[in-house]
Amino acid sequence: MVHALAANVAADSNLAGISEDLVLALIIAYAIALFLFVFEAAYGRRESLAGTRLVAVGATEGRVDDLTVNLRSKEPEVKASRHIFGRVGLGVTVVGFAINLVQIVTRGLAVDRWPWGNMFEFVVAICFCGVGAFLFTSFRYKARYLGTFVLIPVLLLLGIAVRWLDGEAGPVVPALDSYWIAIHVSALILATGAFMVSGSATITYLVAQRTEAKRALGETVSSIAAKLPSAELLDRVAHRMIILAFPLWTFGVIAGAIWADEAWGRFWGWDPKEVWSFITWVVYAAYLHARATAGWQGKKAAWISLIGFACLLFNFFGVNYMFSGLHSYA
């Protein structure tokens, strides 16, 4: 009948303070990068992007070394707006990304646990993964042009986090005190980051598609929309990101089920969070099927993926604030 005495889990306030300052530094860095990317999009020159992995590297037609190469289906040339500011923007994004990492680490040290135990920490970690996925695409697929579209939601999320979510560093409830948080939540946060980039690419794709349709009708398109890269490329980037995110999401949901089995005595109980994770999963599965279904590729599939993204966002904000379930940490 003895009650345990105080477990001293009060957060290390010094480190906690540092991690709060870092969030501000992070926002400033991403905001500067956003400005530079917007500048690039608006004032850059439309140039051909060579060597994007989505387009065959080096497999150009004609004589290469001693080879005579013949390609049946010519890859369309990929063009995007380029400007030195964009490069600088990418550099600043890398700096922001590093600050983001340091922020998460100091936060983890300050509270002496995995640094994703509440909404504020989820948001910061998701932004980290989103920017990470963006950096990956920009180095591997030269998709720097996505910078604007990724950083806008990232800054919005960070703004919401700082303004409305409780950022105070503290301990988590016993149910969250498990190594499964490292597995389950990390997988879902990583997947969310990649879904976010995919969502940005999809919206860009829809805009670019409209531009191309207008051009095909002979209209002239000015404005930033005219400088977007080809719709096909955007579509492929969006697809690639979902292909990365979907298995991660699947794995994360399964890991969650295993954890629920351990913590709550059932692996699936239709808790609102579980329901919406399931819905999100099904909608993205529908997206993948749509791409393999005659008449559903392109714009229709894009809309399905946006519905999936909306479900993801709802799962994050809506479910935490509207419903009371085992998963509410708001």
Binding site: P272, V275, F278, I279, H289
Partner: peptide, 27 residues
């Protein structure tokens, strides 16, 4: 057919929604 699968997937997602909005006996 793939088209039917697609529609059924949508229905599966759509049908799950009321269960998160209304209280459930099983929960």
């Amino acid at each position: 057919s793939m088209r039917t699968a697609l529609i059924l997937l949508f229905l599966l997602a759509l049908g799950a929604i009321p269960g998160s909005l209304l209280p459930q006996r099983g929960v």
